[in-house]
Every structure is written in C-alpha cells, then in structure tokens.
Design a protein around this nucleic acid. Structure first.
Length: 349
DNA sequence: AACTCGTGGTT
DNA sequence: TAACCAAGAGT
C-alpha cells in the first residue's frame, strides 16, 4: 500500500508537473531563495520575483554584499518583508560561518533565521536529495483528507502528527521526487475550494471522499481576528516627500512618510483642508487630502488618507528627502507605491 | 499557544 | 462581496 502510494504519486507527478524555474536546479542557494519566496505566496506570483531576484543576486556572496534596502527593493510588493530581511541576514552568516557553502546538516540549516521545519526539509530533499519530509499547507490538506486526520494543522502537536505520517510514506529511492509530488498534488488536485475528486487517482482510498466530507478538512484551531486602523500619511508639498525606514510593526524595514494615526473613522474623516495636526513636535497644516484608501492586511483593515502639508523635515536626519520621480529608489509598501506612482503620472501630464 | 507579519487571486 | 488563504516562521 505504501509502495503503491508513492509509485502512483510520482508517476502522476512525472506526467502532470508544472515546469517551474526552481525545479531546474540543485543549487541549494536557489532552492532556498525559491522556498522563502513561496512561503504564503502563490506560485504564479512568485515566478517573476524569483527570476529577477536570482538575476540580481545569483550567489550567496552577491546577496551578502548587498544593502538591505536593495534586497527589500527586490522584495517590494511580495509582502511579509521579514522574509527579505532574514535572507539578507542569513546570507551574511552563510558567508562568514560557512564560507558561502550552503550547509547540508539538518541542525545547521534549521538554526538559520527564516528557515523553519518545512524549508529545512525542502532544502535537504530538493538540493541534497536527503530523505527528510516536507509538510506544507498542500500536504496538510492532502493528508488530512486522504486519511481523514481530524487534527489541527496550526498546533504543534497536530503538525507533529502530520510529519509522522509523512515519515512513514516518504519513499526511499526518490525522496525529493516524492516531496515535490505531494506538494504538487495538493496544489493541483486536492485544492482547498475546488478539488477535482472525480478524477483524483486516490479517490477510492480517500477517507474524506468516501465519507463525503472533503470540505470539512483540514481543521484549524485559530481564526484570524482583524482590527481596524486609521492612518494618515503626511506628505510635504507636492515636490518633495520625506521618507523614514520603519523600525517595527507592519512594513518594518520599508520606507514610509511620517504616519499619524487616528482613533476612529470619524477622526479620519474630519481631517481635511486647513485642519491642523500635531506631528513630530510640529504643528502641521493640512493643505490637501486624498480620498480614503482601503488596504487590507491579514490582521488589519487599514483606512488610509494621504495629506499634503506644510511639514518640513529637511533637518531631521532620520528622514530622507525624496523627489517624487526618485521614490522608487526606496522600498515602500504597495499602497504607497501605487499612490505615488499615480501622483507622478498625473504630474507628467 | 496565540499572535503577528502583506498582497492579491478566488469564490 | 466579504471571507478565505497561498510551497511558513518568529516571538
């Protein structure tokens, strides 16, 4: 049964797999970068970022010598920017401690910042062909349905259970192919919303399918709670923008204009032309405001208003004065990128 | 253990 | 259309 499972799976994989750029290499550096980019990110969206990132930073050394802002610039728009800060940090460790040779021991790899259990397994099996299981969101879903595992996929004990299942199933001869294949099967057949159960090669042995409970799995314990926030981005006059690198919270490491936070929708709506705001020990006069922009994050619903003002931060060294045409030299959040790009296009007309 | 960290596609 | 959630990891 176990043999037939992996054989069936790998043979399905060979004739149905997608041709993805990171599947054409054994370079642990490239495998690593691809896995980080793919965390919580759709494959289709990741491809372009991966190709450009590898082109710009082809080796551990080139990445370790880069400036963090340049790495973040390559990451702009991908989200979860700690991933970019962590690979940059880790590339320096790899250069200094490992002489730019990627380690191939489990304990060494998992101790690197930004690399957890899943990514360690992915690097060890895809690059070094070792028999280490990988359990990502696709595998949780596939296994939970196939074996009707009603354990939470977002608790440590639940995840351990799934890893044990993977340990039992992973095949001796081609652990790397097996791992690629279970992920691909979850992504292409055993999908969250529209799984193609009728043509699934495992449907006769799928416990959830037999019970007609495919859509009840996998189980999660924690649901996401969102909070509403109301932000005002303070711009100067139209010619110049002041940006500062964020030190914490959302968008840490990216650049934003000074941020004033309102406590309610009412307070945000109240801010318009000729209002005064107290920001950074300055009384600031609002000259003009944008419409409210709604920007949704995983845990936060942001309502954002851009305000032109008479704020002048020329002598504040934490801030960099940027001309509108040059803002793309700095990594900024998507919502700011879009606004400034629009503004620049308008001014060119 | 529960919470945080982005963005955009899909239903 | 609001909700879900994608090749997770850090704290």
């Amino acid at each position: 049964m176990i043999q037939s499972f992996s054989h069936k799976l790998i043979s399905w994989y060979k004739s149905n797999k997608r041709d993805l750029p990171w599947r054409n290499t054994d370079d642990p550096y490239k495998i690593w970068i691809s896995e980080i980019i793919l965390q919580q990110t759709r494959v289709k969206f990741a491809i372009d970022y991966y190709n450009k990132f590898i082109e710009k930073f082809p080796t551990i050394e080139s990445l370790s010598e880069a400036k963090e802002d340049d790495v973040l610039n390559s990451w702009q728009g991908l989200g979860y920017y700690s991933r970019a800060r962590n690979i940059h940090h880790t590339s320096k460790i790899l250069k200094e401690k490992y002489s730019s040779v990627f380690p191939n021991k489990y304990d060494e790899i998992i101790s690197l910042k930004g690399i957890g259990r899943y990514t360690t397994g992915a690097i060890l099996s895809f690059a070094f062909k070792k028999k280490i299981p990988v359990v990502d969101g696709n595998v949780f879903r596939l296994f939970s349905r196939l074996f009707f595992i009603d354990k939470f996929i977002d608790t440590a004990s639940g995840q351990n259970y799934f890893y044990n299942v993977a340990e039992d199933l992973i095949c001796e001869k081609n652990p790397d192919l097996f791992n690629q294949a279970i992920i691909e099967y979850g992504a292409m057949v055993c999908k969250p919303k529209n799984p193609t159960c009728t043509t699934c090669v495992f449907n006769h042995q799928c416990e959830a399918y037999k019970k007609n409970k495919v859509f009840e799995l996998p189980l999660k314990k924690n649901s996401v709670r969102t909070t509403d926030r109301f932000l005002i981005f303070i711009l100067g006059t139209k010619k110049n923008i002041f940006l500062k690198k964020k030190k914490d919270g959302i968008w840490k490491g990216l650049y934003t204009p000074p941020i004033h936070e309102a406590k309610s929708k009412k307070e945000l709506n109240k801010i318009k032309e000729n209002e005064e705001l107290y920001i950074l020990n300055n009384n600031v006069k609002v000259l003009k405001t944008s419409a409210v922009i709604h920007h949704k994050l995983t845990h936060q619903n942001l309502s954002i208003k851009f305000c032109y003002s008479d704020l002048d931060l020329d002598n504040q060294n934490e801030f960099v004065k940027v001309k509108l045409k040059n803002f793309d030299h700095f990594p900024v959040p998507r919502v700011i990128e879009k606004f400034l790009k629009n503004l620049y296009d308008e001014q060119k007309k």
